[in-house]
Design a protein around this nucleic acid. Structure first.
Length: 579
RNA sequence: GAUUCCGUAGCUCAGCUGGUAGAGCAUCUCCCUUUUAAGGAGAGGGUCCUGGGUUCGAGCCCCAGCGGGAUCACCA
């Protein structure tokens, strides 16, 4: 493994610490009695309470000014400045702890425990005057150092920010250490989930768990991930939704169930799509979609209030206001409003023509429902910035929703659209088993026409419906997208800790032992590595005379006086062994 | 999957028409009793993503690949 200069330095610092009898990874607990946030919030009010404090965290900066130093330590809540004076942490004659350990062997990124008292410096910064200093964990990787300053206007300026998306997502731990707003986004994410969970629990709905591995996937139109169970020797699918299982539970007699579900869809990725994502689905017996619209409005309004204390949320250029009531359009009204065309009476051919006139791309597998969905998705959805309910969808695109009580060809379904994207989907659940069977059969037909997302027929679900599903309202809320809006993030990757990425490629590198086994003296290995040789195989292609010269030259350049040069015969042996 | 942009030191980024690689921070050494992104002085640090090609000569030009971003498509 190739180590950078700084990594080698840190490994050597670690060894020096051990030689001084300091365990770089001690096992004893370090008692903490205060957080940085507690100090910042309460010190001014209750100064006497902060005379004997104990705090742990990661050292983020260090400024040495002779026999006194300043450092910043970061815990899970924030940062605070440390004031470390030589004669305080080294009261006796031996000044090693300050001069050697603190000034030389510790570094940015190390996790420290400190004991002392809180005070305010001459420049007015609340700080900890350190009396005792403990190393709790030595960091061997240099941390990207981000400097920040609040200017007179109150704006946060940053220098050398850690911004590379690939590194931030692959090494989220580093992202979290150096970019505090990232941590905050994820705290907010959990608040969104808690807010919804509390809302639903307060109404007496039961949080449940249903299978992730499903023999028949269902509940949505999407392509699944397929896997295999060895002992049962059968195919299983990672769920694309949990809808059908939750409704089985309503059949079983629960009157309100919900689940925060990780769902998996084997489709494209974008800033709105990760292969695994989170939805909360809720089913409530003896209710309909109109009732559910009220619930969504109240619940999401509460989420905004819980997070921000207001119903208004800044999202990109827009301020989105979640205050009830939200606008409501039927799907046909929305299309007419944004395109001027009334499609409510059209058959499939007329719809196809209309869509083509709007320059939309269609393919042969698209039925009536998909075409309408295409028109809506292209011409209406992007315009819907403020939260808006779209109701009464065509029956063809909603195989699990109940027929509309009064409008022919439609179902009792709504979506809430916000910032141009769907954030939830709900309907009065179809509970007529015969109708449901026919809808599944229509889906099979679509599947035969080439629609890869068409649903498959689930006999067990139909059997459950035959026992009788009460009238039920169902809801799915995309948590990732709701969090994106609530936290003003532009990409789903910024609200998922570990978004899916291609694996990092590992460069093939021979180990020192590989070289020794090949007859290369250990002390010569760093020279070969320095010459850019990664694997022993590479030696095969080299001219032994040139390699001999290069090794001797590099030994001189690296000033390795104690290393004996190889002989030409030695080098020839390395190369010939491979040819 | 398509289009397009990007990949240079631990981090952020320069690098001209092709002429053997630079800055700030970080690191190291020395000096220094309270500083506010930054105390002073000095030093070291590079597979210029990878592999081919063109050329006397490639970080730069051409081709292929890998990884990532953005937009579009599919979708939530």
């Amino acid at each position: 493994m190739h180590l950078s200069e700084q990594e080698i330095q840190r490994r050597s610092d670690r060894e020096e610490l051990e030689k001084l009898g300091i365990d770089p990874y001690p096992s004893e607990t370090f008692p903490v009695n205060v957080s940085t946030r507690d100090i910042h919030e309460n010190y001014e009010k209750r100064k006497m309470d902060y005379k004997d404090i104990s705090l742990a965290g990661r050292m983020m900066s260090r400024r040495i000014m002779g026999s006194a130093s300043f450092a910043e330590i970061q815990d899970s809540r924030g940062r605070i400045q440390l004031y470390v004076r030589r004669d305080d942490i080294c009261p006796g004659e031996d000044k090693t702890l300050y001069n050697t350990v603190f000034k030389k062997l510790l570094g940015i990124g190390d996790i420290l425990g400190v004991k002392g008292f809180v005070f305010t410096t001459q420049t007015g910064e609340i700080s900890i005057h350190v009396k005792k200093l403990h190393l709790l964990s030595k960091s061997l990787k240099p941390l990207p150092v981000v400097k920040e300053k609040v200017d007179e206007a109150g704006n946060l300026q940053t220098w050398d920010a850690f911004t590379d998306h690939e590194q931030r997502y692959r090494q989220r731990y580093v992202d979290l250490i150096v970019n505090p707003e990232v941590r905050n986004t994820f705290v907010q994410r959990t608040k969104v989930v808690n807010s919804i969970r509390n809302y639903l629990n307060d109404r007496g709905y039961l949080e449940v768990e249903t299978p992730v591995l499903q023999p028949i996937y269902g509940g949505a139109t999407a392509k699944p991930f397929k896997t295999h169970h060895n002992k049962l020797d059968m195919s299983l699918y990672l769920r694309i939704a949990n809808e059908l299982y939750l409704k089985r539970l309503i059949v079983g007699g629960f009157d309100g169930v919900y689940e925060f579900a990780k769902d998996f869809r084997n489709e494209g990725m974008s800033r709105f799509h990760n292969p695994e994502f989170t939805q909360v689905e809720l089913y409530v017996a003896y209710k309909d979609y109109i009732w559910m619209m009220d619930l969504v409005e109240k619940m999401v309004e509460k989420v905004a209030l819980d997070l921000h204390g207001t119903t208004e949320v800044q999202v990109g250029e827009n301020v989105i206001n979640f205050q009830r009531p939200w606008k409501r359009y039927t799907m046909f009204e929305a299309i007419e409003h944004y395109t001027g065309v009334d499609i409510s009476g059209m058959d499939e051919n007329q719809l196809r023509e209309t869509a083509l006139e709007m320059d939309l791309e269609l393919d042969g597998s698209m039925g009536k429902g998909k075409i309408i969905d295409e028109i809506f998705g292209e011409r209406c959805e992007p315009h819907l910035i403020q939260p808006t309910f779209i109701t009464d969808y065509p029956i063809e695109m909603s195989p699990l929703a109940k027929k509309h009580r009064s409008k022919e060809g439609l179902v009792e379904r709504f979506e809430a659209i916000c910032n141009g994207k769907e954030v939830c989907n709900a309907f009065s659940e179809l509970n007529d088993p015969q109708d449901q069977r026919e809808r599944f059969e229509d889906q099979l037909e679509l599947g035969k026409r080439g629609d890869e997302e068409a649903m498959v027929l689930d006999e067990d679900y139909l059997r459950a419906l035959e026992y009788g599903l009460p009238p039920t309202a169902g809801l799915g809320v995309g948590i990732d997208r709701l969090v994106m809006i609530m936290t003003n993030q532009n990409s789903i990757q910024d609200v998922i800790f570990f978004p899916q990425m291609k694996p990092e490629k590992k460069a093939e590198v021979s180990s020192v032992q590989d070289y020794i086994d090949h007859g290369v003296r250990e002390e010569l290995v760093p020279i070969l590595e320095k010459l850019g040789i990664q694997t022993i195989i590479q030696l095969k292609e080299l001219n032994p005379n040139k390699l001999f010269n290069d090794v001797c030259g590099m030994r001189k350049k690296m000033k390795l006086k104690e290393v004996k040069n190889p002989t030409l015969d030695e080098v020839k042996a390395w190369v010939e062994a491979l040819n």
